[in-house]
């Protein structure tokens, strides 16, 4: 077979098949499109929730209050010691003035209360940021036990309840994402592969007859390959369109505090490429696998 003629045949046959099996092609495209869109939307929300939780985690810190009268050179030395404790990411020094300013900022509507203060009663302190791998109750307790032994340390505050809640939430979100993600992946693969399989089944006799009159497997598979690429390509574009549209509609309608949950973590072009590749893989792999069983005659 002349190579150019073969390619021409494959393309013409694919166009003819897409035209002749219009409804099946549309159903396959819509299934691929919606399945990918649902899965991607889930991924998008999961990624955004993880990002938010990660940001919350960054707020986990231990505030170390220092005794009054600590010499200035001791502050620097203490800071160095705290920085070297396992699990400590960063140590910020908060002077009495800075502490007062922060308090003023936080008590904006109660200016009168602060005005009544003659002296600055707030102590010197360090805000100790905890490393990501140490954000659990036990590990923070270990850091606190190390810090409280230090000279000039008066008191400590680390919001034990908050850390415990955070650890619980993190565990739940991780588990939820994993379980739903697995279910959704299985469902999407099952739905798409079955739709593609049914589309191939609908042409079972055509495949068998073509094989019976001497067509090679490559000859039979080629148009299905092209059709799989076409369906996956259009399905991928459709999914990308649905997601971008969905995100746009949601971002216009959800309250501002939830906006970051529907933010796009990747560029639209990257999203489109990813979805098109996923769509084509579904279309082609599904077709080829389903086709295999009819090529044994």
């Amino acid at each position: 077979m002349g190579r150019s003629y073969s390619l021409l045949y494959i393309l013409l046959e694919s166009v003819r098949n897409i035209r002749d099996n219009g409804l099946t092609t549309i159903v396959t495209i819509v299934t691929i499109g919606f399945s990918l869109a649902i899965f991607t939307l889930f991924l998008l929300v999961s990624i955004n929730i993880s990002t938010v939780i990660q940001k919350w985690g960054e707020q986990i810190q231990v505030v170390v209050y220092l005794k009054d009268g600590i010499p200035r050179n001791e502050v620097g030395r203490l800071r160095k010691i705290i920085s070297n404790v396992d699990g400590v990411d960063k140590v910020d020094y908060i002077s009495k003035e800075s502490a007062l300013n922060i308090l003023k900022r936080e008590l904006k509507g109660y200016k009168g209360v602060l005005d009544a203060m003659v002296d600055n009663p707030l102590p010197l302190s360090f805000e100790v940021k905890i490393n990501e791998s140490y954000r659990s109750t036990d590990k923070i307790r270990y850091i606190v036990s190390k810090l409280e032994k230090l000279e000039w340390v008066d008191d400590m505050q680390y919001g034990r309840e908050w850390v415990e809640r955070f650890a619980g939430l993190l565990k739940f979100v991780e588990l939820f994402t994993l379980v739903v993600g697995v279910f959704l992946t299985v469902a999407v693969v099952f739905i798409v592969s079955n739709t593609v399989k049914l589309a191939v089944y609908a042409r079972k006799s055509e495949i068998e007859i073509t094989r019976l009159i001497g067509a090679s497997n490559l000859y039979i598979k080629s148009p299905f390959f092209v059709e799989g690429v076409f369906e996956g390509l259009v399905g991928g574009f459709m999914a990308a369109g649905l997601i971008l549209l969905g995100v746009k509609i949601m971002s216009m309608n959800v309250p501002a505090m939830f906006l970051h949950l529907v933010a796009m973590p990747v560029r639209p072009l990257v999203l489109l490429c990813g979805l098109v590749v996923a769509g084509i893989s579904f279309g082609v792999v599904g077709s080829m696998v389903s086709l295999g069983r009819f090529l044994k005659v």
Partner: peptide, 11 residues
């Protein structure tokens, strides 16, 4: 025609 196309006969 299909019987000939599968064996690569020219159009």
């Amino acid at each position: 025609a299909l019987a000939l196309e599968v064996i690569g006969v020219s159009p």
